[in-house]
Write a protein that binds this DNA or RNA. Sequence first.
DNA 1: GAGAATTATTGTACTTTTTACAATATATTT
DNA 2: AAATATATTGTAAAAAGTACAATAATTCTC
Lengths: 231, 231
Amino acid sequence: MKNQHKILKQYFNVAVSVDNVVFGFDADGLKVLLISRGSEPFTGSWALPGDLISPEMDLEYSAEKVLKQLTGLDQVYMEQIQTFGRVDRHPFGRVFTIAYFALIKVENYQPHANSWAKDVAWFKVSEIPKLPFDHREILEYARKLLKNRIRTQPLVFELLPKYFTLTEVQFIHESILEEEFDVRNFRKKILSTGIIEETGRLQKNVTHRPAKLYRYNASKAKQLGFEGGML
Amino acid sequence: MKNQHKILKQYFNVAVSVDNVVFGFDADGLKVLLISRGSEPFTGSWALPGDLISPEMDLEYSAEKVLKQLTGLDQVYMEQIQTFGRVDRHPFGRVFTIAYFALIKVENYQPHANSWAKDVAWFKVSEIPKLPFDHREILEYARKLLKNRIRTQPLVFELLPKYFTLTEVQFIHESILEEEFDVRNFRKKILSTGIIEETGRLQKNVTHRPAKLYRYNASKAKQLGFEGGML
DNA sequence: GAGAATTATTGTACTTTTTACAATATATTT
DNA sequence: AAATATATTGTAAAAAGTACAATAATTCTC
């Protein structure tokens, strides 16, 4: 028994962290939220909001908590992506990191740096600065996964405001998929799914014909068992 | 610095394991490989082949090594599934487990119990015994993932022998997707992808009309950039 | 060796989905 | 009133998906 203890001890000396890839969307296109690191290692560097997690806390909960502590974001859509575990990925020791992606409605949140995060800011996915650890790899993996998810699940509505135009729905798809669609065909397709509905409202204060505002019908999507293919 | 060390130590005391969901396929349908545990906890129980991983080894490599050590299987197709991290999932302490799935050609391998595995055996996916830890949850997640993957990627050929009949291709799809297809339409579809080719050979020693034997054309699939949709 | 048994193989008509393509509508600004 | 800017809409052709059943090639049995 004493011997078994000793054997076990050799395994119980690694750490686990969570890294979040937080996607947002505005008129500029797809964005990612980064923090400016205020502690070692890589102090001062822009990085994915992530942190070591406490051994007493469930994994899912840890992911939410890390995000909230560093950025103030709470109650957002999150999904586990992948675990990254190269031996030398962290200078302080063996740290496995479990990556999550989060989708938020930019208009609803005001991210603010907290805890050891010195700053927090949105970056266009095409203008990401140099990132520490294997964060670049994690980010690219997250983008790939988002692309795949968006073809079969109604995730874009997690990124769009409550009321949105069909042009916005098209633009967000084009931003994420890096591919253009025909306006008429896109509208026909997205409306034929039945998961978005007219609200009767119109855009205001625009210098051109105002677009109709639509809204996502989550219960309809659920009812349709939506794993069916958006585009 | 001393202080920082102390803070860090509170994180570096968890363990990480790998659990493999190994799928195989034969005339009976889809199978999963389980080992009979020869060490604590849950000694004697059938379980997914998994083990704690050494802090000095890369994650991907660990997954392969654990599988090889317990079952003798080597050089198989593996893919990371998910990480499971409930606080109480392991009685010895905080253990995060990273689940992988592996696809093997049953005819090419003779699994044999090694290391602390007392036995190893294939189980039909519909006849899985009670499993320890959260292995049941991991297995179900793996089946779900396999279902999704198989619709868009040519993974079934990792499970089929080198030469196979179209009937086998159809049967494996039906087993995994739990759904039946029309014979004529299925054949048209699978042949139209261009990723399998006739070999000129025929089935032997069957008590009915012998079927043509086909073979997977991996380079053609790669050339077609196969993310395109199998069925 | 003739007939039974068993599984393999193949085509066509119909329906649905996808694709390509451009003119008109409604607001603001000058 | 004209210019500017974006929103909105339909149709025909092509492609893909679906439903459906008769014939072919082997072994087995008598």
